[in-house]
Nucleic acid binder design. Structure first.
Lengths: 403, 403
DNA sequence: GTTGGTTAGTAAAAAAAATTATAAACTTGC
DNA sequence: GCAAGTTTATAATTTTTTTTACTAACCAAC
């Protein structure tokens, strides 16, 4: 941000012009297509001569570039301008229980390079934190980003996180300072953190199905169960960043004990973990499945079961179907609460769309009121596995108001 | 708004200066205390000479007034300025099933006059709509507002309402146009509508306990059960304005049939209506209460029961306590969902604070996770019965960005 | 191809705003 | 009670921005 600012900034403290330049850059970056000078000036409420002056200065500094001429029906063809997509980069990091990954994105959010360490295991220790720092520094070293402008690093991390203060409550909570402050000291650019599920929500909001929808839920159905809430066009993180604890909401019908200590948590019935448990229970009472053919009962992970369901395995279908119905009921209740325009199913379970879609819809009808349900579209994420790191990097741009 | 604009506006189309003047007025109105010229200029990023010029023009037009001199430790004492509180007025109207009321507020939101018609009965007919129009016109006539600037009218109305489009779905839905468009034609100022519960939330957000809290729930516990959600500092109305359908969420333990057609709606167990039902049931199985001394079983309304609970009536206490526990459980679940910093109990039930507070808290502990619960404060509304009309009028100012 | 219509971009003139300088109002310390 | 220091407010000057006017680039129709 510092570099970025200094480039837009002039030598003198021209705060008014600086703000206008920032507006121009922000507008150009948000726009899908390149824009003309008259178009830009209209949007930022500037006269054409001053707008031209500022734009030329930004070109001088390599922030924006010309990008051909616009085809018009009549009149002189205007030049088109856009932000140089490679003027600056943002970094997205995802820290999960098992595995850490880092991707570098340019301003157009095109992924340029990705690093992964599948052997990484997250634990709440200074050593692990140092491993994260080393991983990031090493990746930056290898990526050839040296000397290039890095706007910042966004990090999605498992557990409870306060994105406002930058504190992480479950991991690396031994620090005196906030996690973002710690990282800022170690790196030469600002760091923003959020919960892995919220990060997925950001990705869906800017690049996925939630674009142009001001109220939506993004469900992270993987081994655990999380939910990102978009209300009034913004991700809701709540007072301390804990919003979206969907897995621990009391919607379950059974009374299974949850890791949180309570009974009745939805996550005990709907989650990758629960899917594995349910599968084993069914096998134990004599149910059969193609999955058992060349695997032992304990080695079957929820990913296998999801794949089997899509492939037509009866037991897997029945289990997944059952979960869809249950989460559908819970989501239906939440539809009454927040009246979202869309619910997007993301995470590993998204690949079982065919099996889940009808069961979730069916569950929703049991709890949701007619009118809010009618206008809530159920969708499945299509932005794939790199979604999380893209969302993490997007946090940086969001903070700089570039998206 | 038109009058208001024209007064700030100059004869020529000075859109830049106009925007700055609007900023100044907005800043002064939002500020609790009057401000100095240097203070204003700093906030709106204007030089002192230009700021002075604009402020003098606003004084010329009677929009803002001088308000004494500031006490400082050293230097020349600056003059203080504030918006003339009686420069303009906003009108708040509340349309309930039984009763309609209208209050006039000045820019400081001091209530100047109130009109009520307790005999009004809401039904979905053109005649009833005409009665509303007549009531408003009559009240304005009597209020002496003629010739004064009216910024607009905010209306809180029972039932489902889309505040964005201005359509009302349950009442006056026979109109071709939106309800706000209809009113705009009949009155000489803009009209904004919202659900009665959302309006209560706005009141609490700007004048009550939810001030300075970016995430909160405002529960409207009266004959029905509604909830206004404040997330990221804004009221969430959802995609069509249906957010907060708390009464129809499936949290109930019994299977009573709700008016909406579903079973398990929270409103069947927690609401003024349910309280009356429960009371009658208990009386029928032999329970006694002081309330029965000089009233017939059918004549006892939930308001009486709430008063009796506060006065120490055992049966009433037990019933209200029970409801507190149930709504507490439901709210606890929602705490996990949105991580609010406060929950404010408003509506008629707010007066039973002593009886409700512990039962609600107790219910919350059964469902809410420790961390989000710990930081969520339970409060009872203190802005009283005129809250709704104040909230309705506040919608007008919010739309003009004056609060 | 020339003329008329249309829009982009630039140059000169006019208007508006920001600096800078100065006067006025006030406190404090000697 | 008067000088030094501070802050507000206004006047004079400088800078910036907008308007207006004009030229350039393009299409279409004749």
């Amino acid at each position: 941000m510092d570099l970025f600012q200094r480039d837009i900034e002039d030598v003198n403290n021209e705060s008014r012009q600086l703000a206008q330049k920032r507006k121009i850059v922000s507008l150009l970056n948000k726009s899908e297509k390149p824009l003309t000078i008259p178009g830009i000036c209209k949007k930022v409420k500037l006269s054409v001569p001053t707008g031209t002056k500022l734009i030329n200065e930004l070109i001088e500094r390599n922030v924006i570039i010309e990008s051909g001429k616009k085809e018009t029906d009549n009149g002189r063809r205007p030049s088109l301008y856009k932000v140089d997509p490679d003027y600056a980069y943002s970094i997205g990091v995802v820290v999960l229980l098992k595995g850490i990954s880092l991707s570098v994105f340019n301003l157009e959010m095109a992924e340029s390079i990705t690093f992964e360490d599948e052997h990484f295991e997250l634990d709440n220790s200074p050593e692990c934190l140092e491993r994260v720092v080393a991983f990031v520094l090493d990746a930056i070293e290898k990526s050839g980003l040296k000397g290039k402008r890095i706007l910042g690093l966004g990090m999605g991390i498992t557990g409870r996180v306060n994105s406002g203060t930058g504190y992480s409550y479950n991991y690396f909570n031994f620090l005196e300072e906030s996690l973002t402050d710690f990282f800022a000291k170690r790196f030469s650019f600002p760091v923003y953190i959020d919960n892995d599920t919220h990060v997925l929500g950001v990705a869906e909001q800017f690049f996925g199905h939630a674009r142009n929808i001001r109220n939506a839920f993004v469900v992270n159905m993987s081994r655990g169960l999380g939910l990102a809430i978009i209300a009034n066009g913004e991700i809701v993180v709540g007072e301390q960043g804990f919003a979206g604890e969907f897995g621990h909401m009391q919607f379950a019908e059974s009374n299974k004990l949850c890791l949180c200590g309570k009974r009745g948590c939805l996550g005990t019935e709907v989650s990758g973990y629960a899917l594995e448990q349910n599968f084993q229970e069914q096998v134990d009472v004599g149910e059969t499945s193609l999955l058992m053919v060349n695997r032992s009962r304990d080695k079957i992970k929820y990913g296998h079961i999801l794949k089997a369901a899509v492939d037509g395995d009866a037991l897997a279908i029945s289990l997944v179907h059952n979960m869809g119905f249950k989460i559908g009921k819970a989501l239906g209740n939440m539809i009454n609460f927040l009246n979202p325009g869309a619910i997007i199913i993301g995470g590993e379970f998204a690949r079982a769309e065919e099996v889940l879609i009808d069961s979730i819809k069916s569950g929703m009808t049991h709890t949701a009121l007619l009118l809010p349900l009618r206008s809530c579209e159920l969708m499945f994420s299509s932005i794939g596995t790199e979604a999380a790191s893209k969302g993490a990097a997007a946090i940086v741009l969001r903070n700089l108001k570039l998206i």
